[in-house]
Structure formats: C-alpha cells, structure tokens
C-alpha cells in the first residue's frame, strides 16, 4: 500500500511543512516560537494528514472525518503547517501566526472550519479530550479514528494516566496516540526531569504499544500506523515515535535553547539553507 511514490509525496509534504514552520516562526519576530517541539513532530503529523487520515479540506466539518488532536499544543507549528499544505488554511492566514487578531496563536484554538479541531496548550488535556471523542464515536457507531499527538514530558501529567485507564476500560481501539519521544521537555532531558520507561508503563496500563525507532522516518511511521489501524486487539493504541527535538535545523537539533525562542535573520537564513540540504 505504501508505494515508493506515496512515501516520497509525504516526505515532500514534510519538507514543505518544515519550511512553513520556519516561516511562521520568523514572522512571529520577537514573540518567538516553539521550534524544537514542532520540528520533532513534523513527520508524525505529515504521515497522519497525508498518509493515514480520512479528511477533506473542502469539507472540514465532514462527520466521518478522522479527528486529530495536537495535545502538545505548543507544537502548533507542525499542525498549522499541515493545515496549510492540506489547504485548510491559506498562506495569508499562515503569515498571521501570533499576530493581533489572528486565529493562529502559539497554542491551537478551536476552529473546526479551518481544521483546528481542539484547543490545546495546557498539557495533558488534549489527550483526555481525545479519549472522550473516541468514546463518542463508539456510542454513535461512527467508524472514524481519533489520532492524538502527545509529548513525552507531557506524560508527567497525572491526567494522562487517568485518561489512559479510562480509555482501556472503554476499549477505545479507535484511538491512536503517538508520543513524540524527543527525549527533552522544557527544563531539560526527560531522563533528568522525570525518567519514565514509557513503553513499559503504557503497556502496563493496558495499551497496545509499538516503538518506532526513527520517528522522523515516514516509512516507519506509516508501517506502525497501519499496523495499529488493523490490529483488532480491542485496545487503544500507542506509538512511541523516537524523534529528534529540532529535527532538520542544524543548530536547533537536541538544543534545549530552541524549545521556544525568537529566530533572528541570520539564523533564519541558516535554517533555510539547512532545509535545502534535506
């Protein structure tokens, strides 16, 4: 199913999303942007929007659409970029990022007509809301899936585990969560702040868990996502995608200083030339 050409197409989308993310971050000027958290998640979001999810930019509110929830809302740049590349948001809208009166703040707000499904930014909540949305689909006998991206640091929140238990209890096998395992959070490496053996813990909570060794590789992500879609285990699904925070921009990769920061002209140009090499 994943032909070379379809994978290649998603890679191109991912490359475009990286460029869009840098563009948006640059127009935000001194407000800065969460570059690192967005860049690690680009391939995850691109694989969902351009390889896996059933959705229609011409009909954003289509009832049977798969739902997407960016629970680590500070990574909104990769989400907004996907919506731009898919055609939900115009380029003009894209360039309003963080501007006065914009619908694109530094954490997503809810505008389903523009593909903005759930307002997030307060960590932990998006995932718990996604569980409720998956339950609603079950109750209404709807066959769409709910996809949710969360951060590895976000898994510190007790709410994540309250929701994880509830999802298992309700057999939410229409829920596929992807942890963007970039091994950093805000104040340091996850091993320093809160060292969690995520695969073991999620498994112990009753989730079906798959680890993607290179979570910035589209082909591996697609394999994992499709395996989850077809699993039939009756359990909610979790993919741990091992990614690189700041992926694709030389000076941002694994650099905590780029969790959130403004980018200056010189850095912007450097980022652009980094992206040409990809």
């Amino acid at each position: 199913m994943n032909t070379r050409t379809s994978i290649e197409k998603i890679r191109e989308k991912a490359a475009a999303m990286r460029r869009d993310s840098i563009e948006m971050g640059y127009v935000a000027g001194s407000h800065g942007a969460h570059f690192g958290p967005a860049l690690s998640s680009i391939e995850i979001v691109a694989s969902l929007y351009f390889g896996v999810m059933n959705h229609n930019p011409q009909d954003p509110c289509m009832r049977e659409r798969d739902r997407f929830v960016m629970s680590k809302g500070h990574a909104c740049l990769s989400y907004y970029a996907a919506l731009v590349e898919a055609g939900y948001l115009s380029r003009e809208q894209m360039y309003t990022f963080k501007g006065d009166n914009s619908i694109l703040p530094g954490h997503p707000s809810c505008h389903v007509e523009f593909g903005l499904e759930v307002a997030t930014g307060s960590l932990g909540n998006g995932f718990a809301i996604a569980c409720g949305m998956a339950m609603a689909a079950k109750i209404k006998n709807e066959t769409h899936n709910v996809y949710c991206v969360l951060g590895d640091g976000e898994c510190d929140e007790g709410l994540i585990w309250e929701a994880a238990m509830n999802a298992v209890k309700n057999k939410l096998d229409n829920l596929i969560a992807i942890v963007d395992r970039n091994s950093f959070q805000l104040a340091g490496k996850t091993t320093e702040i809160m060292d969690l053996d995520l695969a073991k813990i999620w498994q112990a909570f009753g989730w079906e868990v798959v680890i993607v060794e290179d979570g910035n590789d589209v082909a591996s992500l697609l394999d994992a996502l499709q395996a989850m879609q077809q699993s039939g285990s009756g359990k909610p699904h979790l993919i741990i995608a091992q990614t690189v925070k700041g992926k694709g921009i030389s000076f941002m990769e694994n650099n905590l200083g780029w969790h959130a920061a403004p980018i200056n002209r010189e850095q912007y140009e450097q980022a652009q030339s980094d992206l040409e090499l990809v």
């Binding site: 809302g73 954490h107 307002a119 930014g121």
Partner: peptide, 9 residues
C-alpha cells in the same frame, strides 16, 4: 502578557 500564545496561557 503571553498574548500571542493564546488563552490557555
């Protein structure tokens, strides 16, 4: 003060 970050902040 976090005006550009949105209402969650």
């Amino acid at each position: 003060r976090f005006g550009p970050l949105g209402n969650t902040h």
